[in-house]
Design a protein around this nucleic acid. Structure first.
Lengths: 146, 146
DNA sequence: CTTGAACCTATAGCCGCTAGAGATCCTATC
DNA sequence: GATAGGATCTCTAGCGGCTATAGGTTCAAG
């Protein structure tokens, strides 16, 4: 049996995060020692590793919840997992293209900066006047801007 | 003079967001009409457009605060603005390479999925076992995961 | 037996908004 | 002038995914 500290170390997850996962029901309520401290077995370690890896791949906690429940039913078809992963991939792709546009714009801004005063600073100028932008990097409603 | 609704429309910013910006001091407290409603002039419209464009480029509100105060001192050298923009570019670049790694990993996961049951689903398997990953996409301490 | 690290709970804060309640104001139409 | 309905006002709470702090308890080593 692992204490919460050992579990966190083994899974690469911070202790308060583990407690948070328990709180939101992503991890089951842990067994407790005589002194009321959480104790974990191998199963929870695996579950936590699964969560961590999924987070590293950018999945939202709600998606992870669903993936976890899928992984508990081994004889179901895996189409549902596929759908979630494809959605995530699409999301990552959208993010990448958005960020590429930002990179271009920032690069152009900086390239044209003559390192003079604010009055003729291209950086400040571009920020104040969207018309100076090559792209329409609006993408309103596409989720967080970065 | 513009009402808050017209201002928001003209700048492409939602009304509650404008009030929020005022609350955190990014916009100055607005003039008020006889009936206590906010009224704005051209200067605030420009300021709000500056903010919006900066947000579209992913700058944090604190950076924008600084950029705004720089833009108010036209005869200062623009090196400070340059530093902020370069930092932002570096941040965007880090984000992009992280997302590219995620994309690769997600793509590989999906490519190898045989569309069978969960039990032999590569997606679920990879999520549970980090060793199956080609990359180390950890990047702990590099800010939010996505 | 004492120290100090690790644990416990509970609460508040981070960012950048967004949503809701309930009240007030402004404008257009009858 | 009345009335409807949109736009505005303030205030508070919530989102995601944690992180930090305070103040207390338990545990393991010396």
């Amino acid at each position: 049996m692992l204490t919460i500290g050992k579990l966190g170390e083994a899974a690469g997850v911070k202790v308060p995060t583990i407690r948070y996962y328990e709180q939101i029901g992503l991890l089951p309520a842990a067994e407790r020692s005589a002194g009321n401290q959480r104790l974990y077995g191998r199963d929870t370690l695996n579950r936590l590793r699964f969560i961590r890896h999924s987070r590293e791949l950018g999945f939202a906690l709600d998606d992870i919840r669903e993936l976890l429940s899928l992984s508990d039913t081994p004889d179901q078809p895996c189409a549902a997992a596929d759908v979630i992963a494809r959605r995530q991939l699409a999301y990552v792709n959208r993010r990448i293209s958005r960020l590429n546009a930002l990179r271009e714009e920032l690069t152009r801004m900086l390239d044209q900066c003559s390192a003079g005063t604010i009055a003729n600073c291209h950086v400040i100028e571009v920020l104040g006047n969207h018309d100076l932008c090559a792209h329409d990097h609006d993408m309103a409603g596409e989720g967080p801007l970065i």
